[in-house]
């Protein structure tokens, strides 16, 4: 652990400039991830710029019926918001399934999606990690891979993104409001996170100094029938082995519209477009759901590992998706 400077600029613009001008500066919001990384030596910033008080802590209605969630809104407050609970059950369910009550009281809307991917080797500075030290190698490949990716991984990194909230936002077509050194811009949430490729040191498309100021969730009537299902090794306070965020509109026994995002399977919250395409117009049956899971997992590549690896995630994800969609469709019968 190294000493670092701590700054509290007067506004977001100043904060962005303060970070932008120092390559070793980082933003600090709830601190639920970076403080761990400071202690572990995974993050060694020279300057922490505290933005907790510099972005909105409000949830505002948007004209289209959507919501604008200020970056400083705490996860626990967002989960409890009656509009979120009514319009986006998938988000209201995803939030409390993450971390612990204490952490959710600290974690923010802007910070949660920016938590680093989770991997025991990334967190252990005595092992090689391309994300921590580009070019040093990936200790996870062939290691303990139970929690690792089956989709979109590379030979450089097989980590998974740990956020539950982000999986719901990926399903909801959320938009990210960003303030950068060159001004404002909007990024579709599904474009925020990147796959590791040959540059696993980057988790997102944000540049140095880019600050999330708010996340917009558009109106999505379909989302009133939505669900977040997280499967993990213990009943609470564990990262997802797999998770499913789904919104489903069934009419006359057919899938009219659907949104699906998957967690615990990739370096980013995984929007399952192929599964959605496979489902639209299909009968709302287990067979269709299973086919959708197959479509989503076409390119799945499990990891071997001394711990048994993670091939189980394929049947697990299939079962979880089928079960989630079946429950959403309100079907009672098993097939």
């Amino acid at each position: 652990m190294r000493p670092f400077a701590y700054a509290t600029p007067p506004d977001a613009r100043e904060a962005v400039l303060a970070v932008a001008e120092r390559p070793d500066a980082s933003f600090l919001a709830g601190g639920t991830n970076i403080v761990d990384h400071l202690r572990l030596g995974v993050a060694t910033p020279g300057l922490l710029v505290d933005v907790t008080a510099l972005t909105s802590a409000e949830i505002e209605d948007l004209p289209d019926g959507g919501l604008r969630i200020g970056a400083a809104v705490r996860n626990s407050d967002l989960a409890a918001d009656h509009r979120v609970r009514a319009r986006y059950p998938v988000l209201a369910q995803a939030l409390p399934s993450g971390a612990s009550g204490q952490l959710r009281n600290m974690a923010t809307t802007g910070g949660n999606p920016l938590q680093r991917t989770r991997c025991v080797y990334f967190q252990d500075v005595t092992t090689p990690c391309n994300k921590r030290e580009p070019g040093s190698g990936c200790a996870a490949i062939g290691g303990a891979t139970r929690n690792h990716a089956i989709l979109g991984a590379s030979e450089h990194c097989i980590a998974t993104h740990p956020s539950d909230m982000a999986v719901a936002l990926a399903a909801l077509d959320a938009q990210v409001q960003v303030l950068g050194p060159d001004g404002d811009r909007t990024i579709p949430f599904t474009d925020l996170h990147t796959l590791p490729g040959s540059t696993p040191e980057h988790d997102t498309v944000l540049g140095h100094g880019d600050l999330i100021t708010a996340i917009d969730v558009p109106a999505l009537p379909l989302a009133t029938r939505s669900r977040y299902r997280k499967v993990r090794d213990r009943a609470s306070y564990a990262f997802a082995l797999v998770s499913v965020a789904a919104c489903l509109d069934v009419a006359d026994g057919e899938v009219h519209d659907v949104r699906i995002a998957l967690g615990g399977v990739a370096h980013k919250p995984w929007r399952a477009h192929r599964a959605e395409e496979a489902l639209r117009g299909a009968p709302a049956t287990d067979e269709s759901y299973r086919a959708a899971a197959e479509a989503a997992l076409t390119d799945a590549l499990p990891q071997e590992g001394f711990d048994g690896g993670n091939a189980f995630k394929i049947p697990l994800l299939t079962g979880t998706l089928v079960s989630t969609l079946r429950e959403l469709a309100g079907e009672e019968t098993r097939t």
Binding site: V120, Y121, T126, T127, A139, G142, F306
Partner: peptide, 9 residues
């Protein structure tokens, strides 16, 4: 981890 000899979790 048998490759390193330490407990990774």
């Amino acid at each position: 981890d048998p490759r390193t000899g330490h407990v990774v979790n």
